[in-house]
Design a protein around this nucleic acid. Structure first.
Lengths: 228, 228
DNA sequence: CAGGCGTGTTGACGATCATCAAAAACGCGG
DNA sequence: CCGCGTTTTTGATGATCGTCAACACGCCTG
């Protein structure tokens, strides 16, 4: 009666969305789930594509971004293992408003709209989880708007560093940038040049020490007090 | 057996969220619904307040905004009759990330979290509707971020006018600004001075004609082509 | 080890938009 | 129709940040 437990099953079960789901539901979802290995630079989907389900990252990094008219781009989110994206578009009749491109090689799960909707009808907890997830996403976006419209370049960078520092020790905290400074800059709505200068400025003020992608923060509270 | 139909019942039934709900569910929601009359300038809730439910506007206008450190504010949304807000915070354990202030006198419904959650457990369509609503909200915010980060003041204003024009005749379209130019400016992330100048510029280019809060657009496609 | 590409830095310059100040126009109640 | 407060406009000035160009650096390959 019992099938061998695949690594897909394990991956699916460990999704936040799927916690509390019984084995039968997991199996049902599994039937609409495909593993997708991606290469660095690969487009998971483009802006304007129709949605067929949502993605969850197993390994590697993916960026969500908007193309700019002049051929550039604006990075909205840098996502890593355990994070998922593309849920919201499933519930609308519009195509993707952003594109998704791999920053590194890696693998992702694609869960089809059909099996998810079917599972939602059987287990109302799934809908609740999705609502919670979308709400968090919405909240994050509002914070981004707040940053873009109300804060200076320096304030945005400081806020980003502090968020990344998380619960590191308040003294001698260390932050490792998740990807290239160019991408980080776009995420913070800066040019690479401006990011470089602001980092330099913070270092000159003794608030941080930069060594490549690793940034030392000798006094986290003092850095935080910059952002009054 | 049948109660008199209150105006609250009518208001609730006409909510997009409540379409397709049977009379019993409406009555259940009704028990957690309160009517709230508000005056111009009244705060419905402040940033940091805990959520107890969501709001739906019956009559009047309400703005959602972020306070700025220097005492100013950034308007996120200008909402009118039929629109609702505050759904997302119900699904998180965090307080409101924005505040809501009345732009005019009016009335709103407040539907308590408790009765809504109970109704959701009985009717899965409610959850589906909420998911659709939140998804639209998310989509709108992404468009806002796109506008703030990728477009100039002029482009944002043109896009706003075109959106407001909706399906008006392509020639001789007329747009009425929903509120004061100061509030519109903040919504578009401009100062009132800049809004005034950009309006002037568009008028000078023959793209629009401004008479107070009424804006004539002699050639909608030509205005749209401004935003390449 | 040379060459080359992607990434990051630095400097000079400029454009867009905010700020400050003041006048003008509008709306509304008396 | 007048007066007064609010909203909007206009002008002068300036700050922040983007643009363009050149260069440094690491890293990988041939």
């Amino acid at each position: 009666m019992s099938e061998p437990v695949s690594h897909l099953q394990i991956a699916l079960t460990s999704l936040p969305l799927c916690r509390q789901l019984d084995a039968e539901e997991i199996d049902a979802l599994l039937r609409g789930t495909r593993e997708h290995a991606f290469r660095r630079g690969e487009m998971l989907f483009s802006k304007g594509d129709p949605s067929t389900g949502f993605f969850s990252i197993i390994r590697g990094q993916i960026k969500l971004a908007l193309p700019s008219p002049q051929g550039g781009e604006k990075v909205l989110e840098i996502m890593g293992p355990g994070q998922s994206f593309g849920e919201a578009v499933m519930f609308m009749e519009v195509p993707y408003p952003v594109f998704a491109q791999a920053l590194t090689e890696g693998t992702a799960l694609h869960i089809s709209k059909a099996v998810l909707f079917a599972a939602m009808d059987r287990d109302p907890r799934l809908a609740r989880k999705l609502l919670a997830g979308l709400s968090m996403r919405l909240h994050g976006l509002i914070q981004d708007v707040e940053a873009y419209t109300l804060q200076s370049a320096r304030q945005r960078l400081v806020a980003y560093l502090i968020e990344r520092a998380g619960d590191a020790p308040p003294l001698r905290a260390e932050v490792r940038l998740p990807t290239s400074k160019t991408v980080i800059a776009s995420r913070l709505n800066l040019t690479p040049e401006t990011l470089s200068r602001v980092l330099h400025g913070l270092a000159e003020a003794g608030l941080i020490e930069v060594r490549g992608r690793v940034i030392q923060i000798p006094d986290l509270p003092r850095l935080a007090s910059e952002n009054a």
